[in-house]
Simulated scan of single mutants.
Amino acid sequence: MELGVGAARSGYRLEHFEDLGSTNDEAAARVASGDPGRLWIVADRQSRGRGRLGRVWTSSTGNLFASLMLIEPCARPAAPQLGFVAGVALADCLRNLLGGDRRLALKWPNDALYDGAKLSGLLLESLGAKTFGCVIGFGVNCVSHPDDTPYPATSLRAIGAAVSRAAVFAALSDSLAQWLDVWARGDNFATIRRAWLDVAGGLDAPARVQRNGNVMEGTFRGIDAHGRMLLESHDGKMDTIEAGDLSFAAPLVVR
């Protein structure tokens, strides 16, 4: 497992483990220990992998489990933008590996889907009271995928893509380094937003959002200048949503 050439030249580092509880937990421990950041943690296996909203992330051998730890990447209020930077980098990386296949899309906020099935997930965590650290965790289904997910899942192998997890990681590390530079510590989120909308699935499609036990229905209109979901209700009201589970009434539309 190696960093991409661009990431290595930009000063990113890599530590590779056979077994970890969680790459995000290991990266968080490095924040607490005073590590200077720009550190990738990659594991062959995880015993306590997790996804958004506290869900368990199935960690089958052969898939990619990687977390990037950053120190003081931006002002604290801008930290949620990192999820969109990471999502754009992931989609850019995977589309390139798949020859530009536009069936690869993002579902808000940052799940990577292929033809409507989940190929990858992402977990962003902010840490530290004094030293501000952020951890961006990626799980990419390279050779296998779970069957017990809220909506269909798939893997690179299942869609016929002969791409190794080492190749995915090298490309991802380069892509994320590039898009972090574009983002410019939050000064250029407008460009990230445009790039995110270009790879978003389900734009202008009927959608449903579950949050706090409630269900909202309407039309998915993308994201606002802060990354919040825009959901237009049936009476024309535009709601902005910061967190929730998004699903589509019909198969996800990829532009």
Rank of each mutant, 00 (worst) to 15 (best):
M1W: 13
S10N: 10
G11F: 02
R13Q: 14
L14V: 04
T23Y: 00
E26V: 01
A29Q: 14
G37M: 09
W40S: 02
V42F: 05
R48H: 08
R50C: 03
S67T: 14
P73M: 07
A78Y: 01
A86T: 08
G87N: 02
L90H: 14
L90T: 12
L97Q: 12
L98N: 05
G99H: 09
R102L: 10
G116A: 06
L119C: 09
S120N: 02
S126V: 12
S126G: 14
V135C: 05
G137C: 03
F138A: 12
V140P: 01
A153D: 07
T154W: 05
I159E: 07
G160N: 12
G160R: 05
V163P: 10
V163S: 06
R165G: 02
R165W: 00
L176H: 04
L180D: 10
F189H: 12
F189P: 05
A190F: 06
I192P: 06
R194Y: 02
G201S: 08
D204V: 03
A207S: 06
N214H: 14
E217S: 15
T219R: 15
F220E: 03
I241A: 09
A243Y: 04
G244L: 09
G244C: 10
L246N: 01
A249M: 13
A250M: 09
P251H: 02
